[in-house]
Amino acid sequence: MATFRVSAFVAAPPDRVFATWTDQDRFKEWIGGVTRVTDREGPVDQPGSRYTVWFGRMASPTEVLAVERPNHLRTRFGNAILKGESDVRFVPEGGGTRINQEFVTRGFISGISARIFAAGSYRGSFKGELETFRRLVERENPGTGGTR
């Protein structure tokens, strides 16, 4: 098991940040490699809901484990390359929201893959995806301030 943490400030209120984060139709705008989301069962803001995120031909079944709108979302995800849990906190900060995300992987291959995704801030990295998400939300919320 390996644990990785990333954080970013988004100049938008938590309810807006949470709504965009959980909008499955928008995953491919900010999560590297996502091509579609299928097999949706239940609302994303309800524990026990499930969906499958596709990275080309590779499926990543996902289950919502815990949710507290608009402050917290924990999911379990997995495929042959990367599997584990994501725990995301949306914390009000000043005029915006601090996103604190923690990935805990399961298995040797997932640990190695996560280490690669955790290194640097390139587009497909954990930090790169968070930065892409920040820009997406702030572009849709003009006048909410800059980045930190």
Rank of each mutant, 00 (worst) to 15 (best):
T144I: 01
A2Y: 06
G146Y: 00
R134G: 01
V104S: 07
L82W: 06
G146N: 01
T52N: 07
E63S: 15
T20H: 03
D87Q: 11
I81G: 14
V6Y: 12
I99Q: 10
Y122V: 08
L65V: 10
P92S: 08
V44Q: 15
H72A: 11
P14W: 00
S110P: 03
W30I: 07
F4K: 03
G48Q: 05
N141C: 14
V17F: 02
R69P: 03
G120M: 06
N141D: 13
A59M: 00
G48E: 02
Q46I: 04
V34H: 05
A66Y: 07
T147S: 13
N79L: 07
L130R: 01
F133N: 00
L130Y: 01
G124H: 13
Q101I: 05
E68F: 06
I81H: 15
G111S: 07
P14E: 05
G33Q: 01
E68H: 12
G107I: 03
F103Q: 11
A12S: 04
A66G: 10
R50S: 03
R123D: 08
V88G: 09
V34R: 08
S86G: 15
V104P: 03
G78H: 09
A80L: 15
K127M: 13
V53S: 11
F55M: 13
K127E: 12
T97R: 10
I31A: 08
R89G: 06
P43I: 11
R76H: 01
R74G: 02
A114F: 02
Y51N: 12
N71D: 09
G143R: 01
R148D: 06
D25A: 13
P43Y: 10
I81R: 15
